[in-house]
Simulated assay, not measured.
Amino acid sequence: MSAQDYKFKGWVGLDKDCVEKGTLVEQEFTPKPFGDSDVDIKITHCGVCGSDVHTLNSGWGPAPYPICVGHEIVGHAVRVGKDVKEIKVGDRVGVGAQSCSCMKPDCSQCPNKNEQYCDKSVGTYGNFYPDGSKSMGGYGDYARVHEYFVFKIPDSIPSEIAAPMFCAGVTMYSPLKRNGAGPGKTVGIIGIGGLGHYGLLWAKALGADKVVAISRYSNKSDDAKKLGATSTIATAEDPEWAQKNANSIDLIVSTIYAPNLPIADYLTLLKHHGTYIQVGAPEDKVPAFSMFPMIMKGVKIGGSLIGSPAEIKEMLQLAADKDIKGWVNEWPLSKVNEALAAFQRGEPRYRIVLVNEKHVN
């Protein structure tokens, strides 16, 4: 079979109950038309992200069913367009949560290496390209993506380790790097899970003096310290946690998206002129909070969205140079429904990666 003869096939959700009922089904779908700058990827691995579940259950708004999710894609290039410059057939490559942007010189974001904030950004699944075709993700056999959003993977990073870095990894790397995590700084990571454990790994790798793992309970404290934390805070086990740790952290990155976030208490942890960055995206609105901790100490509150292509390349090189490996659990793609159920139960420590048995030998 030639590269042009394969069919795109994946596990798709047909309605908002597909995760709860375990009813993703494998079926063929039509990818976007192949362009001169496109790369077709034979998928070997795809990470499971919280965004996949939010999308499948229409938690962030109605999903365009049928939909194949998955935006932590790793595989091998099997076809490249005539204008593709950096990727060749056979390269091991990865794709994250973004598959396109306008890439125009007059864009307010793309020329400044902020492509993820482009108004015409296209997500790897659940969005539509300018020609009206639907973007479909990596819970399947093949992916088709513009070369600018396809990245070579350093040889030293195993595919199952690389996959979650393309969303979870860079979602934490970007705000840490952009907000000065490094020598002389104390960094706090709220939530020790699929996102948060990368926050601990990157904060340590970037050279932060102290790394504080902030979670409700202390049951993950040993894990947190193995991942790079120098101390932990268990907010549900000490009613005075905020006061006891006040004015101690330069930068906090929060992965939590519960509707009852104690934001004012988190701001209390910050030093004067510190920064709080939210990356966890809630389905519901967070409650109002007192502005005084923000005003009285001059702290800043911000948000961060995935990472730019430049940051993905930089992150992969850092992982290769320092032998950084996230904690992953491999599941066969054919058992995706069981994997999503395990994800919903909070079982993985700390990331699930689907392995396409048809393509891994």
Rank of each mutant, 00 (worst) to 15 (best):
W60E: 03
V336A: 13
S254F: 05
V355K: 15
V25Y: 00
A162G: 10
T30N: 08
D131S: 11
P259G: 12
I157R: 02
I324N: 11
P66E: 03
S221T: 07
T124D: 00
D83P: 00
P259I: 14
Q317V: 07
C102F: 13
E314Y: 08
W331S: 05
H71M: 07
A163D: 13
L333P: 02
E20G: 13
D209C: 01
F292N: 14
G137Q: 04
G280T: 09
G184V: 01
P282D: 09
E28F: 05
C110V: 12
L201N: 07
A205P: 09
A339Y: 06
S174N: 14
G191L: 06
A342N: 12
D40E: 09
A208H: 03
D223T: 03
Q98R: 06
V93F: 01
F29Q: 04
D17K: 12
G140M: 11
I87E: 04
Y129A: 07
F149L: 01
F151L: 06
N114F: 06
P332N: 10
Q344M: 15
L261N: 03
A258G: 05
S174P: 04
L269A: 01
D321H: 07
N219F: 15
H359E: 14
P154D: 03
T268C: 02
I189R: 00
A3E: 13
D284M: 15
P31N: 05
S121V: 15
S133T: 14
W241C: 09
P31H: 05
K244V: 09
A242N: 04
K271Q: 14
I324T: 10
V253R: 11
T171H: 11
S231V: 08
C107S: 10
R79E: 01
I252C: 03
S304M: 13
P62F: 00
D222Y: 09
G126V: 14
M291A: 15
I157D: 00
E283W: 08
A242Q: 06
G326C: 12
T124C: 00
I43A: 03
Q344F: 01
Q27A: 13
H272W: 12
G50K: 05
S254C: 14
W331H: 09
L318K: 11
G126N: 12
G140D: 11
V279D: 12
